[in-house]
Design a protein around this nucleic acid. Sequence first.
DNA 1: AAGAGTTTTGCAACCGGTTGCAAAATAAAA
DNA 2: TTTTATTTTGCAACCGGTTGCAAAACTCTT
Lengths: 338, 338
Amino acid sequence: MSQHSSKRATLSEVAALAGVSRSAVSRAFTEGASVSVKTRSKVERAAQELGYRPNVLARSLTTRKTGLVGLVANNFHNPIFLEVFDLFTRQLQTVGLRPLIVNLTEETDPQRSVQLLLEYQVDAVVVASSTLPVGFADSFSEAGISVVHAFGRPTNRKDINVIGIDNIEAGRIAARRLLASGYNDVGFLGGPEKATSTRDRLEGFLDVLSDYPKIKTRVHFAGDYTFEAGFDEMASMILRGLSQAYFCADDVISIGAMSALRRANFRIPQQIGIIGFNDMEMAGWDNIRLTTIHQPLDQIIEESVICLTGMLTLNTIKTYQKLLPCHIVERDTLPALS
Amino acid sequence: MSQHSSKRATLSEVAALAGVSRSAVSRAFTEGASVSVKTRSKVERAAQELGYRPNVLARSLTTRKTGLVGLVANNFHNPIFLEVFDLFTRQLQTVGLRPLIVNLTEETDPQRSVQLLLEYQVDAVVVASSTLPVGFADSFSEAGISVVHAFGRPTNRKDINVIGIDNIEAGRIAARRLLASGYNDVGFLGGPEKATSTRDRLEGFLDVLSDYPKIKTRVHFAGDYTFEAGFDEMASMILRGLSQAYFCADDVISIGAMSALRRANFRIPQQIGIIGFNDMEMAGWDNIRLTTIHQPLDQIIEESVICLTGMLTLNTIKTYQKLLPCHIVERDTLPALS
DNA sequence: AAGAGTTTTGCAACCGGTTGCAAAATAAAA
DNA sequence: TTTTATTTTGCAACCGGTTGCAAAACTCTT
C-alpha cells in the first residue's frame, strides 16, 4: 500500500527498491516496451510500495507529447456552454487528453493565449466559440500549434480545422419556417452584431426573404447573449412596433424577449411567434417549451475530438472543415403546422 | 517578428543566436535574476526573432512548481456551475495558475483522479462540489496533494481546507423565513438525499421547526439537481397532498417544481410559496423572480484561491476552514413581509 | 595604476524521465 | 553441447530547462 509524506517518489527510487536499472522501471510503465514479466512485477511491487506515479511532464520532454489540449472559450455566460464544456471534458478524458482552459476575459487578443499555451506545450488547441473575431484561430496555427475551431466558420486557410454548423443555412431554415406559418411581417433578433454566427444567420435569413419582396422584414441585434439583452431589445421593439414573428439567434435571448412580450400582455404564439436557436436543455422545460433550431452539440464536439486525435496520432494532416446540419424542434412558441 | 515551422525554439538555440550562455538566457527569463541589461536585451532580441517561449514543463522539473491546479467537479448539469467555473478560471488565471479540469463522470472513486493529478504534478487541487461522498477530498491530501474543498462541509481533519457556506444555518434561515410568513404546514424539497449539503440544510430546517410542534412539516427529495427532478417530485406531491410553502434546495429544482404547480393551476405565491437556493442568474429573470437564498459564490471562490496561493507561496500551512454567511433575496415567490 | 568590492557570466550538475545501442541472458536450432 | 537467433538489460546521452559556485568583468577608491 501507499502512505507517505508530501515528497513524491521518483523513478530512481523505484529502481533502487526493485533492484533494477532506471530504464527497466521506465519500460515497465511503457505500453509494449521490452521487459520480462519477472522484472515488470518486481517494478510494480516497488512502485506500489512507494505510491509511485510517473511524471508525465518529465516524460513529455522526450516524447514531445504532453496530453494537454488548450480549450479556449469566451462564452462563460451562456448556459449552453456548460453543455459544451461537459461534453468536451468528457470526450477529451476518454481519449486520454487533458483540457487546459483559457477563459478569454474581455480582450480577445489571441497573443496572450498563444504564449501561454506555447509555454505549456499543448499538443493542440480547440477554440470553442462562434463569436470571436475572424482570424482568431489563425494565430495558434501561425505559432505552430494545431488547431480545431469548433463552432467556427469555414475559412480558406488549409491549416485551420473547422467543425461547426452551417449558420447561413440555419438562417434559411428559420426564414422558411416562418414563411410556412404564413407570416408577412417577420423579424430577426440577432446576437452581437459583429459575431460571425449572427452575420451568417442573418445572411441566410435575408437570402430566403429576398424572394418575397412583399414580406416585411425587420432586423435587430441584442448586444449580448443574455436574458437582459433579449428582454431590453424586445422591450424597445414593443414601443417601436412589432413584427408578427421573430427568429432569435439564441435561446436565452428568446427567453428574455418572450418575457418582455408576456410582460406587455402579448400571447405567444397566438399574437407573436418566436423561434430560437440552440435547443439548450432549458428550451424543453415545461414552462418554456421554445420552438427552436437544434444545433448538434454532441456531434460537433465528437467530431472535433476525432479531428484532434487524428492530427495527433497519424501526422497525415488532412484538413477538416465540416458543417453539420441543424433541424427545427417544434414546441409551443410557433403555431403548429397543419 | 516571429514566423516559423512547427518546431518550437529552445533555450539553447536562443543562447546560440544571442551569443551568450544557456544560463544567461534562463536568467533573462527569470524575474529578478542577475543579468545585465545588455545581455538581457540581446537575449530578448534573439528570443523574439525565434518566437521563443520558455517551456514551463521543463522548468517545473527543477522548480517543482507547475502552475497547474486540479479543478475537480461533478456538477456539469446545473447552470450554477457555469458561474462557478467562470469565476474559478478567471481567479486562477489572475494569479498565474492554470486549471486542469477533472470531470467526475458517474464514478466518484477518487483514486483515478488522484493518480491523474499526481502524474501531472499539480501544485494543488480544488474540489468544487457539495455533493461528493464524505471524505472524498481526503484522498488527495493522503496522496500528498494540498487540497481545498470549495462548497465543502467542515471536517476535523487538519489537512483539508474548506471554504463553503453554513448549510445548516441556511436551512434555519429558510425555516425562519417561512415561519415569518405565518405558514403552518411547510415542506422541504431537497436535492439528492445523500448529498451532505441536502442533509445539512434539512438538519437546520428541522432544527428550527422542532420548536414549533404544531407546524406540520413534510420532507421530500428530488433525485437530482434538475428541472425534471423538481417537476416530477412536485407533480407527485400534488397528488399526495401539498404543504403551503416549500424550501427547495436548489433554484433549478424550484423552477421545475413551480412549473409543475402552475401546470396544475396553483398560483404562486398566493396559494403556494416557494423559496429556493443558490440565487443563480436565472432566478432574477423577469419571468421567474424566485425568492431564494443567496450563496456568495464569488466570495467562496475568491477565498478558495487566496487559500490556495497562501499554501503555495508561504508554506506555513495554516488550515483554513471558513463558512460564509448566506442571505435571502426577496423576489416574488413568497408573499412580501409586512 | 593597483587593490578592494560588486556585479555578471559560464561551467557543470541536476530535475525525472526516455531511448539507441551494445552487452548479457535466455531460448531455439543444430 | 555448441552455435545461432531472440529477448531482456543497463549504460549513457539526451529532452529543456535551473542553479550553486568560482572565475571574469566591471565599478569605485585611494
